[in-house]
Simulated scan of single mutants.
Amino acid sequence: MSVVYVVCFVILLAAALLALSRIERGPSMFDRIIGLDVMTAVLIGTVTVIAAVTKRSDLVPVLVALSIVGFIGSTAIARFAAAESAEEGRILTKEELAMILAERQAQDDDAPAVHDDESGPVIVSVDDEAEDRGEGR
């Protein structure tokens, strides 16, 4: 029977490693959410196998609590992630960020200068001590 437990732990370890790689790589927020859900399921599975190995029934409330936390956590994260577009949730590479910044800079350079002819009064704050020392102007 101990071979079954070892196989279960190996499968759970493999699932945890794959989930960690999905959380780390991404590329989108939804991939990371799925990775966290899988990690929660792996944790629940691990506690279940430990409860079976040690024949402890007092771990059942822990399993229920982990299940509730996993459900509420994934629901809350999914709700926040659904509010942003797929492009906003994606982490950019250095090359993509440099390209976007270069495009914005090119747009700013090409835009005509805007001058406001109807500017209101200009309010200037003068430091009295600096003016007394001759530093005001």
Score class of each variant (00 low, 15 high):
residue 38 V to C: 08
residue 119 S to D: 12
residue 17 L to W: 00
residue 52 A to E: 04
residue 40 T to R: 08
residue 29 M to T: 12
residue 5 Y to I: 11
residue 105 Q to I: 01
residue 35 G to F: 08
residue 112 P to S: 02
residue 107 Q to Y: 00
residue 43 L to W: 02
residue 133 R to Y: 07
residue 67 S to D: 13
residue 37 D to E: 13
residue 75 T to Q: 03
residue 51 A to D: 11
residue 28 S to P: 00
residue 119 S to C: 15
residue 38 V to R: 00
residue 92 L to A: 11
residue 94 K to W: 05
residue 77 I to D: 02
residue 1 M to Q: 13
residue 41 A to W: 09
residue 47 V to R: 04
residue 98 A to I: 05
residue 125 S to K: 05
residue 50 I to A: 11
residue 6 V to S: 12
residue 42 V to G: 14
residue 10 V to Q: 05
residue 64 V to N: 11
residue 49 V to W: 12
residue 92 L to S: 02
residue 42 V to Q: 03
residue 104 R to Q: 05
residue 92 L to F: 07
residue 13 L to E: 01
residue 30 F to T: 07
residue 46 T to G: 06
residue 23 I to G: 00
residue 100 I to F: 10
residue 96 E to H: 01
residue 9 F to C: 00
residue 30 F to Y: 10
residue 31 D to W: 12
residue 78 A to M: 08
residue 136 G to V: 06
residue 18 L to N: 07
residue 36 L to G: 07
residue 109 D to V: 04
residue 99 M to V: 10
residue 19 A to K: 09
residue 134 G to N: 06
residue 116 D to C: 02
residue 7 V to Q: 03
residue 80 F to N: 13
residue 87 E to R: 05
residue 14 A to S: 15
residue 16 A to G: 13
residue 19 A to V: 12
residue 37 D to S: 04
residue 102 A to Y: 09
residue 37 D to Q: 07
residue 33 I to A: 12
residue 97 L to E: 00
residue 112 P to T: 14
residue 19 A to N: 12
residue 56 R to N: 14
residue 97 L to T: 13
residue 1 M to S: 09
residue 54 T to I: 11
residue 102 A to I: 03
residue 63 L to T: 05
residue 71 F to L: 15
residue 74 S to E: 15
residue 67 S to G: 14
residue 9 F to D: 00
residue 64 V to T: 07
residue 19 A to Y: 13
residue 135 E to W: 10
residue 72 I to E: 10
residue 4 V to C: 00
residue 112 P to E: 07
residue 124 V to K: 06
residue 90 R to G: 03
residue 84 E to L: 04
residue 52 A to R: 11
residue 84 E to T: 14
residue 101 L to I: 15
residue 119 S to M: 10
